[in-house]
């Protein structure tokens, strides 16, 4: 008996392949949010132009940046499609639910974060659209948001845009709430992605699961301090 035929496509559509897809795209998104979070912290730098200089530096990468942006957009899209399809299949796999159901507790990892992946995920997708609209596609040099760097270069004044937005309570408090949800998504996600990619062993798993909680919390805190700082320092 020989191995059943497998193509790259059929492998990716298999139960294992679907998890490899959520895992790889999830890790890509985690890498992105970490870099984004660290970049944002430059707002708090004593140099008032640090944030604009950082943003300008990224823009100057040109095609390299565009390639990364396309990759990132693909990650978001694939991640969301496969994530939602897993939830759709879940309903098909158990058409009649239980009248009484509860978790058996540790070593189960089916806590709040794990059970709400689809909810936090969909909120993150909605947030992403609003967020891009406010900032990436928000007012730029054409609308007078211009700053001058120490080098004398005229660049987009994103710092001013951020300052204005986060003086509004809806942004100042709405963003931190979403960032806590992002932290929860990562709390299950970071461990889950590595398990999906077959990297977890019985020995490693508890450490990685603990690390995922720390990373999720750090990313959430790193993101939410800037809006709160802007609001309360007004």
């Amino acid at each position: 008996m020989s191995r059943p035929d497998v193509t790259l496509l059929s492998a990716l559509m298999s139960p294992v392949g679907r998890k490899v897809l959520t895992g790889v795209t999830g890790i890509g998104l985690v890498a992105f949010v970490i870099v984004h979070m660290i970049g944002n912290l430059s707002y708090l730098s004593p140099d008032p132009q640090a944030y604009n200089a950082y943003a300008h530096k990224l823009m100057s990468w040109g095609w390299l940046l565009y390639t990364m942006e396309i990759g990132l957009a693909l990650c978001f899209l694939l991640h969301a499609i496969v994530g939602v399809s897993i939830q759709v299949r879940r309903r098909k796999a158990r058409p009649v639910g239980y009248k009484a159901y509860k978790s058996a507790g540790s070593p189960s990892r089916s806590g709040y974060s794990a059970r709400s992946m689809i909810l936090t995920g969909i909120i993150l997708l909605g947030f992403l659209i609003l967020h891009l609209n406010s900032f990436k596609f928000g007012p730029g040099e054409a609308e007078g948001y211009t700053a001058i760097l120490q080098s004398g270069e005229e660049v987009r004044d994103l710092r001013r845009l951020m300052t204005e937005k986060f003086r509004e309570p809806l942004y100042a408090f709405g963003y931190p709430v979403v960032m806590v949800l992002l932290g929860m998504h990562m709390r299950h996600g970071v461990w889950s992605a590595l398990q999906s990619l077959g990297m977890m062993s019985r020995r490693l798993s508890p450490y990685v699961y603990a690390f995922a909680a720390v990373l999720g919390a750090l990313v959430a805190i790193g993101f939410l301090v800037v809006p709160l700082y802007i609001y309360f320092s007004a």
């Binding site: 679907r18 998890k19 299949r89 507790g105 189960s108 990892r109 059970r115 299950h188 889950s192 077959g198």
Partner: peptide
């Protein structure tokens, strides 16, 4: 259905089979 790595299975398994086996299956599949 698909596995979302809830690990609820390991918690109820009468033999305590570890979800590390699922990671091993994924490696073997790839």
């Amino acid at each position: 259905g698909d596995c979302s790595n809830y690990a609820e299975c390991e918690a109820v398994c009468p033999k305590g089979i570890s979800v590390s086996g699922i990671a091993s299956m994924r490696r073997a599949y790839m």
